[in-house]
Design a protein around this nucleic acid. Sequence first.
DNA 1: TCCTAGATGCAATTCATTCGCATCTGGATA
DNA 2: TATCCAGATGCGAATGAATTGCATCTAGGA
Lengths: 135, 135
Amino acid sequence: MNSEKIRALLAGVDLRATTQRVALLKELLEQAHPLSVEKLTQGMGNALDTATVYRTLDTFEEKGLVRKVELAQGRALYEHAGEHHHHIVCTECGVIQDVDVCLPKSVQGTVQRASGFANVNEHALEFFGVCKKCA
Amino acid sequence: MNSEKIRALLAGVDLRATTQRVALLKELLEQAHPLSVEKLTQGMGNALDTATVYRTLDTFEEKGLVRKVELAQGRALYEHAGEHHHHIVCTECGVIQDVDVCLPKSVQGTVQRASGFANVNEHALEFFGVCKKCA
DNA sequence: TCCTAGATGCAATTCATTCGCATCTGGATA
DNA sequence: TATCCAGATGCGAATGAATTGCATCTAGGA
């Protein structure tokens, strides 16, 4: 993914293409799985300040560029917001993998009726197991 | 729920029935929904030290008495481990409600085959929406 | 090229959670 | 029932992710 495409992505959501934003978005696109702020920062050679990474990720999330994934104990993970999908986590080593399984479409409607909520917009689904390497 | 029953629950999982454990378990059973450590402590009149609450909840979790629910931003919630169920969270006010919807039984098997994991033991499923009051 | 709203870096802060350690106590034993 | 001690608790200090205040810098339009 070259810089121009990344700058176009930023322009598409009305964000100034700062050096830091380009670097961070590139990192998120290249590492196509959920990453902690620490890993992201390391991946960019510690060039960005931690506070900047947090603020930028928040901005990206508001613009729909990234998704925040709360899987790990005590630290948030972020991934580029491609198509809707879920994850499976190894309870031994913590490795995270995408899965393409999702809920039957009818479920959110069922939940809405059963819960009495005015509407149901999203869901999060994670599986936990043991990966081959750890088994 | 009287103290004797609670002491029996503790004995059933080989835990000493201390004043603190009885109080905490009682609180968890009476408030039948996920609670933060802060709410739990308040609910017991701030009688227990925070560190004790954390340590006791960890112990309860190991023994299968409580389940830790990671829903809120930056703070864990705990609920008495009754039967397997999921939650729906209001994205406006944060209220959490149980839902009895679950995945079709076949899904974990599908995930196992698709992911290449050695086994799939658990899953977490949360819905997000807007409750009637906030709509 | 100039100008400024917005972005960044740095340091200090917040806040949930954990830990070290001295003291206390449940419950088994004599 | 009195004694004893492994395990539990309280307190305070420490940790670590995340946030914030503020001075400085810069992207990008004028």
